[in-house]
Design a protein around this nucleic acid. Sequence first.
DNA 1: ATCCCGTACT
DNA 2: AGTACGGGAT
Length: 259
Amino acid sequence: MTRTGPTDWLTATGDELASIRTALLAHYDHSRRELPWRGETDPYRIWVSEIMLQQTRVETVIPYYRRWLERFPDLEALAQAEIDDVLLEWEGLGYYRRARNLQAGAMLVRDRYGGQVPDTVSELRALPGVGEYTAGAIASIAFNEPVPAVDGNVKRVLARILDELAPSGSALRSLAKRLVDPKRPGDWNQALMDLGATVCSPRRPLCERCPLSPWCRARAAGTQEERPAAKPRGGVPKSVRITAVVVDQREHALVERQP
DNA sequence: ATCCCGTACT
DNA sequence: AGTACGGGAT
């Protein structure tokens, strides 16, 4: 492969897409993090791991994930559990709504789908606590559906590939959709997330070790540290407080008031 | 798009 | 106390 610079992803050829997929998947195959849910394809287990990983770091989740599967080894076990037992098992993870949603979802799948987790993004999205990201992750990892899974890490990776300060949701989705490897969608999505967690970090990304650097516009421009843009501090004030003091001609205050 | 939520960090 | 974060919900 000979390359002259980062690709225009809107017009990328099939060969170019194949090249970037091959590069990242090869990297993933030899340097992926070994995690308890890696290589797993049981949709219930992927579901549990993805919900636990929302707003919670990997190291924290690992022991909870293991204990959870001992206590609730399959969807049926979770669906018939007492909510108090569910919450007890979740204790320490925080965001307890996730646990309530997970069990409500398990009951829903049991009652509406005969215990089989649905395999489409739209059906998955109907489960409580499952949004676009989580639905894509479950569909791709557990069911090999060629759909993207764009979490915070992936957003950063894509923003750097595009060298955009604040790529729109639609720009991110369309690029993510084009990139997904049709043969190994689950591995592809996990590879992108892994890359964001380990190489394409928010600060000081390790571009020298990045298998995607040949395709990365930010890397070519040297702007990787500033992509995506930091959030504007504070934002636009919604109101401005004005205080006036009325004085007479000798500058004695006639009216004073504490705001 | 924008808001909301619960938590961690400062 | 205030803010940043990363998801979901609307």
